[in-house]
Nucleic acid binder design. Structure first.
Length: 273
DNA sequence: ATGTCAGACAACGTCTGA
C-alpha cells in the first residue's frame, strides 16, 4: 500500500499537477493540506475519475485538509479533541480552523494535519501553534488508547517544524525564527512520546530530503529547503514501511506547490481490523 | 529551466498569509 502526504497550497490552483501526480505516483491514500477551499468546492469529480474518494475538512480561503483514497474511507473524524481556535481578522471570537482529520483507509488509520505556522516567536499565532500541538497529542493518545483495533496508525502532514538543525538548509539563518525553536521541538517530542516515530525518507538527490522550498529567490534550485512535512507512525505502521522518499520531481516546473509529497510504501501485514 | 504565489475583495490593484 502506498500512502503519501502533500501540502498542495490550494487544491484548485494545483489541480492539474495533483491529477498528473496521482496518475503517475498512484498512491492508495493521499493526505492533503492547505486545500484552501470549502468542502463543497472540492474537485470531487476530477479525483473520482482517477478512482479516488475524497473526504474534506475545509471552509474557504485558508487552511483545509483532505484525505483521498482508492481503498475506501471509513470512520472519518474532523478536528482535534478540545481543538483550540484562533482569532481571525474580523472575527469576534476565536474559532477552531480546518487543520486536522482522521480516516481509516484500507485498514490503515491516517490523520492529515496542517499545524499552524506560528508566524513569529512571541506572536499569538506561536502560542496557538503550541496549544494546537498539545491538542494533537491528546487526540493521538485518544486514538491509540487500546480499544481492540489493530490498525497501523500514522499522523501525516505539514508540521511547520524542522525536527533537527539538519532539517534546515542553513540553521543559523533560522535561529530567531519559528520552525526550529526549542518550544516547537519540545511539542513535537511530546507528540512522539505518545507512541510515534518520525519515518525518515530516503534521500534521493541531496543528503537531507527536504520537503519545502520557498517560492522566492530560487530556493528550490539552490536546495534552500526544510524538512517540515512528516510521517509520524506508530510501531505497527513503522514496522511495515518498505520505502519512504520525497518526490522532489513534483516541485519542479510550472504551477507547483512550494511543498513536495512525502511517499511511504507500506506492507500493512495481515488484515486484523 | 526555476529570481513568489494564491485567494478575496469590489477588484481589474492591493491586501494578507505563507
Amino acid at each position: 500500500m502506498r500512502i503519501a502526504t502533500w501540502n498542495v497550497n490550494s487544491v484548485v490552483a494545483r489541480l492539474p499537477r495533483l491529477l498528473e501526480w496521482l496518475a503517475s505516483a498512484e498512491p492508495d491514500v493521499l493526505c492533503l493540506q492547505e486545500v484552501k477551499c470549502a468542502r463543497d468546492a472540492f474537485p470531487y469529480e476530477e479525483v473520482e475519475a482517477l478512482g479516488y474518494e475524497a473526504a474534506v475538512h475545509g471552509a474557504g480561503r485558508w487552511n483545509g485538509v483532505a484525505v483521498l483514497s482508492r481503498v475506501g474511507i471509513d470512520d472519518v473524524r474532523l478536528g482535534l479533541v478540545d481543538e483550540p481556535g484562533f482569532l481571525a481578522d474580523g472575527a469576534l471570537l476565536p474559532a477552531p480552523e480546518q487543520r486536522a482529520m482522521g480516516a481509516t483507509c484500507g485498514g490503515v488509520r491516517v490523520w492529515s494535519v496542517y499545524v499552524p505556522n506560528g508566524r513569529s516567536v512571541g506572536h499569538a499565532h506561536y502560542a496557538y501553534k503550541l496549544d494546537w500541538l498539545a491538542a494533537l497529542r491528546a487526540t493521538v493518545t485518544d486514538e491509540l488508547t487500546p480499544t481492540g483495533s489493530t490498525s497501523p496508525f500514522a499522523v501525516l502532514g505539514d508540521f511547520n517544524i524542522a525536527p533537527t538543525d539538519a532539517d534546515v538548509w542553513d540553521a543559523d539563518l533560522f535561529r530567531e525564527s519559528t520552525h526550529v525553536t526549542p518550544g516547537e521541538r519540545q511539542a513535537l517530542a511530546d507528540l512522539l512520546a505518545a507512541g510515534l516515530t518520525d519515518v525518515m525518507p530516503r534521500p534521493l538527490k541531496h543528503a537531507v530530503p527536504f520537503t519545502y522550498w520557498d517560492y522566492r529567490q530560487l530556493a528550490f534550485p539552490h536546495n534552500h529547503g526544510m524538512r517540515i512535512d512528516l510521517v509520524l507512525a506508530d510501531e505497527r505502521f513503522r514496522s511495515g514501511v518498505t520505502d519512504a522518499y520525497v518526490d522532489r520531481n513534483a516541485r519542479k516546473g510550472k504551477g507547483t506547490s512550494d511543498h513536495a509529497p512525502v511517499v511511504v510504501d507500506l506492507d500493512p501485514g495481515p488484515a486484523t481490523g
